[in-house]
């Protein structure tokens, strides 16, 4: 084989690909993040219009647990979304460590919630008597759909080389941002409620993303 010339069948392919060339719109990271943030903004507006924002959100200082839980979810969602956006443009040497640390940070909340419920019957009581628990987990997960769709569309246009990891972090990003968005409606501020039910969408959407998205992301 001649070392200076590409093999003949490859030359034919090069001619075909060159003839097919059209200008493309470059996938820049800022465009991907803008897409994810736009999806989040639409989700927040939808929560406000459909469910309504919690009372006093704009007029008084929000309780600290509400702020801590939702800001941690927001940070996790943004860290995971940033990783997902960069996964669309692969590169040997890329590292996607930020969402791992953010997830570890957020995991403190459910652990603290469970640790606070170690007394006899407290956990059962907290889970069984929280009438809004499943509602928050379910609507938080549903609120994740738009962000998940936006990130999936972005990845499908790009070239993710680890579809499993991309699917997982898409789910985590969508679950965290969706739960943070729905959190603007939820009036309950207890550690147990926020630490368990508002974190559940992250786990559920992460698992769903890991299982369901890879077939859509392979190319």
């Amino acid at each position: 084989m001649n070392g200076d010339l590409p093999p003949k069948p490859v030359s034919g392919l090069i001619d075909e690909l060159t003839a097919d060339l059209e200008p493309v719109h470059i996938m820049r990271g800022r465009d991907g993040m803008a897409l994810a943030l736009a999806a989040l903004a639409v989700t927040v507006v939808a929560v406000a219009l459909i469910a309504g924002l919690r009372e006093g959100l704009m007029s008084s200082a929000p309780p600290s647990f509400f702020l801590i839980a939702n800001l941690l979810l927001l940070l996790l969602g943004l860290a995971a979304a940033t990783a997902v956006v960069s996964m669309a443009g692969p590169r040997v040497g890329n590292r996607h460590d930020a969402p791992k640390w953010a997830l570890a940070m957020v995991t403190v909340l459910p652990l603290a919630a469970l640790a606070s419920l170690t007394g006899p019957g407290q956990l059962t009581h907290a889970l069984g008597d929280d009438n809004y628990g499943w509602q928050c987990a379910a609507y938080g997960s549903i609120s994740a759909m738009l962000v998940a769709a936006a990130l999936t569309a972005w990845l499908r246009r790009g070239a993710p080389v680890s579809p499993e990891r991309a699917g997982l972090w898409t789910g985590v990003a969508a679950g965290a941002l969706g739960s943070a968005a729905y959190g603007l409606h939820c009036p309950i501020d207890s550690m147990a409620h926020l630490g368990i039910w508002h974190m559940l969408p992250v786990a559920v959407c992460g698992a769903l993303g890991r299982v369901a998205l890879p077939p859509l992301l392979r190319w």
Partner: peptide, 13 residues
């Protein structure tokens, strides 16, 4: 090469 062609938008110059 075909993948390069299909995914050329994903390269950040």
């Amino acid at each position: 090469l075909v993948s390069l062609h299909r995914k050329r938008a994903s390269y950040d110059p």
